[in-house]
């Protein structure tokens, strides 16, 4: 026996913390950590819902597995983009004003 409102509350808490993490960090990798937290909140919610008696098709755990896979794919591409950004601009600071022109910007500016 377990009361499912507990994992539901934990999921809500993790999502809120993730949102805060996304907005409170300027390092792109740390922003990704926030995103992971939000994803895990969703996973937890799925598992919780799937644990209700009478949940059909084993949907809860199966979709959780799928989301984990998608998260792996997402983090791969996101990290690739972050690395490219670092190579081009020398930093991964998301609060820096990006150079939208075509000319390469001078080195060292805004590097962490």
């Amino acid at each position: 026996m377990i009361h499912l409102s507990l994992p539901a509350a934990l999921a809500a808490l993790l999502a809120g913390l993730g949102v805060y993490g996304v907005l409170a960090r300027r390092n792109a990798v740390l922003v990704l950590i926030g995103v992971e937290l939000i994803l895990n909140a969703a996973n937890l919610l799925l598992v919780t819902a799937g644990s209700r008696p009478g949940a059909p098709l084993s949907a809860g755990p199966v979709i959780t597995l799928f989301v984990i896979t998608i998260a792996a794919a997402e983090i791969t591409v996101a990290l690739a983009i972050i690395l490219v950004m670092f190579r081009r601009t020398g930093h991964i600071d998301l609060t820096a004003v990006p150079d939208l022109s075509d000319e390469p910007e001078p080195a060292g500016e805004g590097a962490p």
Partner: peptide, 17 residues
């Protein structure tokens, strides 16, 4: 819109919420 990613994220989440 100066293209600052952090501000964009903020706006996005404000909108979502």
């Amino acid at each position: 819109h100066r293209g600052v990613p952090s501000l964009s994220l903020l706006s996005l989440l404000v909108g979502v919420v």
